[in-house]
Write a protein that binds this DNA or RNA. Sequence first.
DNA 1: TCCCAGGTGTCGA
DNA 2: TCGACACATGGG
Length: 253
Amino acid sequence: MLIDLSLTMKSGQTPEFVWDENNGRFSRLVGGKLCEIWHENRLRFTPEFESYVADFLRAGDYLEKIYKKINTDEVMGKAVKKYRGLRITKNDPWETTLSFICSINNNIKRIRKNVQSLMINGKVMTPEEILNADISFARLGFRQKFLKKTAEMIIGGHSMEEIKTMKYDEAIEHLTKLHGIGDKVANCVLLFGYGFLESFPIDTWIRKMMTENYFGGKKTSDEKITDFAFDRWGKYAGYANQYLFCYARGVRV
DNA sequence: TCCCAGGTGTCGA
DNA sequence: TCGACACATGGG
């Protein structure tokens, strides 16, 4: 399987907030047991987590095939070359939702701190725990009320399970009804939490990247950028997005 | 000290 | 529908 493990784990996806790293060895508790992943000639991991890791790293995604689909122009060509082996990860939906609520108007270092402070025994606090506990120790700032309100709505019956059976448009509409979840966070949740590879989250980096490289520097609405991305990269727009995101930020691992 | 961060909700034109 | 602004906190 083609993978740059360090890049994948530290590219601003959910794992950067919830996995630990020690000399290129990534670890976390899964079901109370320590799961480790590292690269040594090839990808290696704690044996009993084979199927978990395959799902987490989306082993079924054949990157060469995806590159053929998304490598449509010079900019993407450079991004794909520079970040070869970057994979989209598949994470727990609630963990991803909580993480990207913490991401709002925040930087990656502090997002990790915020999320880590909401973890107990290797797991993020459940919606019930978030709603019932005093979580001011996490210093989420204005995001605290977003997280509490979203937790309350989920407990009140706004199903996160049903999203698995929804089409993309319906899923976005469903998610953005939650307080504090707008288009950007919803797209991240669908991409990293539910595996909707067509999701195209538009943040400050992507907006700048897209307007500069595909719209001649002209101010462009997010809706138009989204239409362009779907049109150009189709069902792999999410992969295109992640490569452009790293390229825009100049990520180097 | 100052600007900014993987944005969102709200309000007024 | 669109622009402006507040929102908490801390990294660089």
